[in-house]
Design a protein around this nucleic acid. Sequence first.
DNA 1: CATGGCTGCCTAACACTGTTAGGGGTTGGT
DNA 2: ACCAACCCCTAACAGTGTTAGGCAGCCATG
Lengths: 262, 262
Amino acid sequence: MLDCKREFHDSEEGVRTAMPENDTTAPGADATPGSSATPGAGAATPAVTREALAQAALRVLEREGLAGLSMRKVAAEVGVKAASLYWHVRNKQELLDLLNDAIMGSAEPPPREGGWREQFHAYCWRYRRLLLDNRDAAKVVAGRLAPGPNLLGLMEDQLDRLRAAGLSDADAAMASYLLGAFVQGFVLQEQSPISAAEVLGGSRREIAVAAGDLFRALPAEDFPNLVDLADDLTAPDMDARFEFCVQRILDGLAALLPPDRR
Amino acid sequence: MLDCKREFHDSEEGVRTAMPENDTTAPGADATPGSSATPGAGAATPAVTREALAQAALRVLEREGLAGLSMRKVAAEVGVKAASLYWHVRNKQELLDLLNDAIMGSAEPPPREGGWREQFHAYCWRYRRLLLDNRDAAKVVAGRLAPGPNLLGLMEDQLDRLRAAGLSDADAAMASYLLGAFVQGFVLQEQSPISAAEVLGGSRREIAVAAGDLFRALPAEDFPNLVDLADDLTAPDMDARFEFCVQRILDGLAALLPPDRR
DNA sequence: CATGGCTGCCTAACACTGTTAGGGGTTGGT
DNA sequence: ACCAACCCCTAACAGTGTTAGGCAGCCATG
């Protein structure tokens, strides 16, 4: 009776994250967590829903970054004290799961035109763009697989195209996984600061130059290739680098198809 | 005078992380904590070096995971109080950089035999194995590019082979980057818990089954592909999945080479 | 030998974090 | 009017990274 509240906030557990459950990003006063369905609902103005929490977390993330995203700040963002969040959310990790899918919410699949190669290409770029545009999105997404309604929708669409391209079921599933893993890894690397050069809080280009100097300053007898390739290794054009990688993966996938379908 | 200590702990800044500086993996039993080090020992016996710190951090990481790795615990591991660490290290991030390269220290490049494809293949697998064998290594490595002596050595060797395979300078640099980004992303995904299934603290296989059930339970009219490919999407054999991805990348790289060098 | 400066550690403290216990209103249903 | 559920609150706990300032030994110099 004491902690009956922690028991369950809504009807089912496993299905909730899976069900699309019409998520209107609209600030409508409806759609309290899941309890709206349960008869005998009490409160008049919920004021804070799981949707609202996710959006608030998104704003805090944009403003303060992942390291600065605390329960107290998210609570303040929705006009509430920290402890109250635990009514709607089991712990911070669950809030991050909501945030996770909220980030995916702003993604939209590329137009369904052109060959599979163009479409897969566009998918990679859009996903990267999504991760780059939302602050610390890569860190939030990485290390947590939160199959919320938004992510599920994207996967569904993606798989549909891969199968239409002629990939087998297993290959389509693998390819989808490959895309996700690679893009996440790439953006994570791309955004990761270089330890040696962090002292100078310079721009991306400046620290690339600094990294180049670092490589060039190595003893040439021990690291001939690093010294030699310093420029190539620290080329600051990340778009070109990404494009290269994507093309490699596309070529690799193309090799799975019969020659007439590439 | 007050904080003169924070000025510099050692000679040069930028070069330190770059120089190999013979790293002994610490001679056995001495490093054990306890108050034995404190009495009578002055400045003569340092008792805690950056190397020792890195090794201690590695042990704490193995025992408690990244989330449980705190300055106080690492300090206790070397028999010292937390504040003392800031004499040797600027902040926690710098300790993590040391840890980063310490993890890389246990990597050894694959034998230099077979074609470039076998060697690149082995590189991918060894890197993944390294990240899997050291607890939370993927999380430590991701989001931080710490070009310590160990990582530099690996890059050097890797680039050497890629160039020997016939890749252009730019392509070799890109390919090396691709390898790192992909493997990190893959292992990160591989190890990331699934939000919906975390309640059951089951094994990898169990949560894969649970994820499969989750996909199968989706409304078939909205997610026909997810329902259909549930088995393929949740196939628990991560080795096979990794192998697939690596082969795609290898194929993609092979397309860069003239047909006679593939 | 004495003096100071440097090294390496210490204790205390600050502002913060996630999380829990328990209490108090407001609401709707009976 | 009562009850139960809902939603939020205050207070507190243990733990975090980090800094200020102090204190004991070692070095080299006067």
